[in-house]
Write a protein that binds this DNA or RNA. Structure first.
Lengths: 254, 254
DNA sequence: CGCGGAATTGAAAATACTCAAAATTAGTGG
DNA sequence: CCACTAATTTTGAGTATTTTCAATTCCGCG
């Protein structure tokens, strides 16, 4: 139907082309093509739509937009949030490179939340109907897709646990440890990273106010558990933060 | 491979058999077989394992159990909950007839939460590997399965919104309206139903204490919005509760 | 009839919020 | 590059919602 893209038939791959393909993407071991062989990765590549650049504060999709594509983040960071009838918003997650956006839209054929770039970012557009066709041909791809959706379900259950019965300091520790481990998975430092979102976003996500986040940062800093400079965080006592996050340790206010 | 079950080849269907099949199940328009034609429903029926009865307070599966099956609820009610490292539990949902349990387990091949029956219940065991085989043959089934998983994602996002930025009275109103609409979907009254879970379970789910739930019930009763007798609830002012749930109206304490 | 779990109610306490002001940082244009 | 303005963050003080603790009450069940 669609003519095969040049790099799919050319024996000598163009580097530029390779970079714009799943096979050449640094995230391919984390992203949708995880575990596929070269043939299947190429098949996946052929259905991927354009790469789209989204600049900071721009939305990738809005609530109620019709659902056409899933999006894989090539680089950059996003936040997703819902807006309730009375206009208040709740951030439901922060996403980074290698993660998939838009799965909430499958059920109603419209997006259920809004995705906004936290910095200049790039995504791969994955037309869902074409992905569904591929599922019939690549069972491994289908199985992995189910794992990704299921992972999103368990991630959200963890957030429910956080919001439902953790105190402020524990919530914040869980947030930091979660960021830390995701950066670590991506080959970055687990103890030193930049927060891409505002204090307000963190507070909204954790069900706390911006003032509470600020106070928590100050307290954690005073306790010597971390260093903060603007959005740059250095974790000095990962074990303590992990214990706090696990709920096996708690600090007295001050 | 497996011999076809008798009702799949017999022209005259046995009523008992029919009742134990998807086609004969009162939930088939809500459950996994939604929208399938007779041929495909029969194919689905053939992979369904045994029907399993779970009595009140018994678990269907526990955290860390190896993942083999999804479960469709034929009748009865369940709660699912997580337990965090420090031993506290958080109820992540209440499930009723026609709903699917176990999707959280796909990602890690072990159950991520525990499912316990709130009353004597019955589920259909759906071996996941066999379901995956069917997906290749019935694209409609696959598409619907994705909608169900996606729906679970959006449901959890709604709970995150609830836990993240609603006050106690709004949370409780959302809970009541949600129950009401799910019973209505199933052909039961939307204004009169029985809560299958304890006050403690409700509180845990909503991120509140049992005492708060009790006080909310008393207040709503005093305001004339509902009638409560033990676990039996009659909603007297659905519009008011919906407005409360939407956040467009709020009641003053007392 | 009495026991035990569940639910209700009250009073005190605590955590996180709101409001306000100051300080810091980022963005913009000269 | 600096100055100016807007936005974000920090900090403090007082408040409010919800929790905790405690005492009753209710209800099912042996």
């Amino acid at each position: 139907m669609n003519p095969p893209l040049p790099y799919a038939e050319s024996p000598s791959l163009n580097v530029r082309m390779l970079k714009a393909s799943c096979a050449g993407c640094s995230m391919h071991q984390l992203c949708l093509p995880m575990g596929l062989n070269d043939t299947d990765i190429n098949r996946l590549d052929q259905i991927i739509g354009r790469r789209r650049r989204i600049s900071r504060d721009e939305s990738l999709y809005r609530m109620e937009d019709p659902f056409r594509n899933l999006y894989a983040i090539r680089f950059g960071h996003f936040k997703t949030y819902q807006i309730n009838p009375s206009g208040e918003q709740q951030i439901t997650g922060f996403q980074m490179a290698g993660e998939l956006l838009g799965m909430d839209a499958i059920s109603a054929d419209r997006h259920h939340c809004e995705a906004v770039a936290l910095e200049d970012s790039e995504v791969c557009e994955i037309p869902f109907p074409r992905l569904e066709e591929l599922f019939g041909q690549i069972p491994m791809l289908l199985h992995h897709f189910h794992r990704i959706m299921s992972q999103e379900i368990t991630r959200e259950q963890n957030v429910m646990l956080l919001l439902g019965n953790m105190r402020a300091e524990q919530r914040f520790a869980v947030f930091l440890i979660n960021m830390s481990s995701r950066y670590s998975t991506r080959g970055y430092s687990s103890t030193s990273f930049q927060l891409r979102m505002s204090r307000e976003d963190i507070g909204n996500y954790l069900g706390l106010t911006i003032e509470s986040i600020s106070r928590l940062l100050s307290r954690f800093k005073k306790q010597g558990w971390l260093e903060v400079d603007k959005r740059e965080v250095i974790i000095l006592d990962p074990l303590m933060l992990k214990a706090l996050a696990a709920g096996t340790e708690n600090c007295n206010p001050m």
